[in-house]
Each structure stands twice: as structure tokens, then as C-alpha cells.
Computed example of a mutant assay.
Amino acid sequence: MRVVAKFGGTSLGSGDRIERAADSIASTVDAGHEIAVVASAMGSTTDDLLEDITFETNDADRAEIVSMGERTSVRMLKAALSVRGVDAIFLEPGDEHWPVVTNELGEVDVEETKRRATALAGRLDGVVPVVTGFLAEAHDGTVTTLGRGGSDTSAVMLGNYMDADEVVIVTDVEGVMTGDPRVVEGARNVGEITVDELRNLSFRGAEVVAPSALSYKNGHLDVRVVHYQHGDLLSGGTRIEGQFESLIDMRETPLACLTVAGRALRNRHGILADLANGLQADEINVDAVASGMDSVTFYVDEAVAERAEAVLHETVVSDETLSSVTVDDPIAAIRVTGGELPNRPGVIQTIIAPLAEAGINIVDLITSATSVAVFVHWDDREEALDIVQGRFD
């Protein structure tokens, strides 16, 4: 089995934790597995270095300075492995075997990085490379970085390009939890989660795996998150399943758009529950929900629009904060899904600008971390779908 293990700053935050990390790596080697290691800077070293740069400096010098945290970590971890009888080497930018290369735009040079990662994988028999996370090297030898969460990106990228069986992210959390254990009681570990679920959580505050790293995960590469105290790199934690799929599709059947208006709706606690519970009681499925300052809109299948209107109307007449319910149909829903959407500045403009140029009115636009749903009138659906597909293809 071939494993890439990434140790975060907390898991390398002291001499004792470095020894713990070295023990888990040595155990993996003793079990007959190939392993490459990606190391973050110890503790908060990178943040501390960035705070200390209070003077004017260029990007190249800044990258050299902040690289010192990772450069220290790999030397310490290599030394700890050596005393355990593990044949380890450390790799940093400038080394002839360094794998992660960026182009003149600062983006990963995929072809060259794949070539170097493949060569590094060929050296894993009996040797453990300890690679500085977060860092990269430009073609001219300049040190560059992969941005926030770059060590996670380094690990999953190398796991992909080195044809690893698994990437293990060693951090200070018990994998993905059902809630923040510092806030809610009874939070427990989630055994499995999809990349799409985790990406949405990551972009909404969950600090488990850097969102930029997940785009390098393919369907054949397992990724797990384990706590540094766990000790076993090959079990436990949360397994991240699947891979991002870029998809543009259109709902086959029309929707109805039901809007409930109310002058104080935004200040009335429980109003959304009252409206949604009424639809649930009548077994009406809600395809999407959008809310405004004084209104909330439910999208349901057009075939149940009359029932849905009657249900919502009952709530409207019984609640003095609500004014009216209206129905607009038929509506088409076109959804753009892809793991890279959050990293594409102007992606919303890419979708709506050509629709506006074609004179197509957008009824609604609903976004999440990894998808955009565009609602247009049913008669405009085919033209709108062709336009959106053309822009993304």
C-alpha cells in the first residue's frame, strides 16, 4: 500500500508530538507500506513569521521567509525518523528531486509536477521522503507558495500524482464531527463524508481539509482525516469519498415558484418552519428555497402547485405578519455544479451576463459553495441551457 501522510502544524507543535508522528510513520514502514510525508510548519510558525514581516518586501522574499517554518519541520521529522532506523530524506525547494513546480502565473505546472511526482514515487522502496508542505518552486528556482491550506493541497496533489492508495491528513480534530464539540454536546465523529458535503462545510467555516486540496482528489484515491493522538495512520478518523464532478443539467419537469410576502417576515422567528411544515404535512417536496427581506420563495413541482398554494395560504391567513402568496409557473431550473466554482472569480457573471445579453429574464439565482442554480421561465429553458453550457465548455 502506498500512503501520503500530511502532518499539520498542531501535530508537529512540540518535540513530543514530532516523536509521536515519527512513531506512526515508522510503524507504517514496519508494516511493509510505502509512505511519503508532507510536513507543515510547527505550530503557528508561519502565521508568526507573517506577522513579523512589518516592512516592505517583494513576493519572492516573503515566500523565502515564510518557508523557514516548513524547512525546520522536515529536518526535525527526518532526524526523528533516522534514530528509529527509518531511511528518510527531506525535500525542499531547490532539491533536485523536489516535486511541486509552478508556472509564470504562480499556478501549479501540472505536467511537470506529475513527472517529478512519478519519479519520486519510484524512489519510495525503502526510503521515506519528508516534503515541505505549502511550498512550491518556479521554473527559475524561486520559492513560491500554494496559499492558505497549502500543505493539504501538497498532500492530496502528491497522493494523486504519485498514484497513492490513500492520503492521510493528520490534524488536531477527530476527523469530521457532527457539530463543533466546543459548542454542542454529544458531537461524534462522522465515519464517511463526500467531497461535495465537505467542500460545502469547508467554505462555511469547517476547518478540516483545505477546500483547494479536495479538487486534486480523484475517485480512486482515499483521503482520511485522523487525530494526531490516534497513532495509527492506516485506520480510524473520517474517510472522504468520491471526487468533484463538473456538471450542467436542467430539471426535466417544470417547477412552480410560490412566494409568500410579509412586512415583518424577517423578524418573525419560526415562520419558515411554519411554512415548510405545512408543505411537509401534505407530502409536498421542496426543490429549492430562496429568501428575501420581506418574502420567502418555495420551488415545488408544477404538478402540485395548486395544493402547495392552498397549504401556504392557510398559514398566510392565520398569521398577521404575512400578507399574501403568489404563484408563477412554469419555471425551469438549470444547475451548474463543480468543485472549482468557489475558486473562479466572476463565475456568477459568467453565467448571468450572456443570459442578459440574450434577453432572458432570470427569475431567481441560488448559490451554494459548489453550485449555482439559475431559474428561468420554461419557454426560455433550451436557449438558456445552450448559453450556459457554451460558456463553461
Rank of each mutant, 00 (worst) to 15 (best):
A119P: 02
L120D: 07
L120Y: 07
L120F: 05
G122A: 14
G122M: 13
R123N: 06
R123V: 04
G126T: 07
V127S: 11
V127M: 15
V130F: 00
V131Q: 00
F134C: 04
A136I: 04
H139K: 12
H139G: 06
D140K: 02
T142E: 06
V143L: 10
V143P: 00
V143F: 09
T145D: 12
G147Q: 09
G150D: 10
S151Y: 00
S151G: 06
S151E: 12
S151P: 09
T153V: 14
T153M: 15
S154P: 02
S154N: 09
A155D: 03
A155M: 03
V156G: 02
V156W: 01
V156Q: 11
V156M: 13
M157R: 09
L158I: 08
L158T: 01
L158Q: 06
G159A: 02
Y161N: 05
Y161S: 12
Y161L: 15
M162Q: 08
D163Y: 04
A164K: 07
A164F: 09
E166H: 11
E166V: 10
E166D: 08
V167G: 01
V168S: 01
I169E: 01
V170P: 14
T171S: 14
D172P: 02
V173F: 08
V173S: 11
V173Y: 03
E174T: 13
G175I: 08
M177W: 07
M177K: 03
G179Q: 08
P181Y: 01
R182P: 05
R182K: 11
V183K: 15
V184N: 02
E185W: 00
E185V: 00
G186E: 13
G186P: 03
G186I: 02
R188K: 15
R188S: 09
R188A: 00
N189W: 11
V190E: 01
G191R: 13
G191V: 01
E192F: 04
I193F: 00
I193Q: 03
I193G: 01
R199E: 15
L201K: 06
S202E: 02
S202N: 07
F203H: 15
R204N: 15
R204Q: 15
A206G: 01
E207H: 01
V208F: 10
V209A: 12
A210N: 11
A210T: 08
P211G: 00
S212N: 14
S215E: 15
Y216D: 02
Y216V: 11
K217T: 01
K217A: 07
G219Y: 06
G219W: 12
H220C: 03
H220E: 10
D222S: 08
D222C: 05
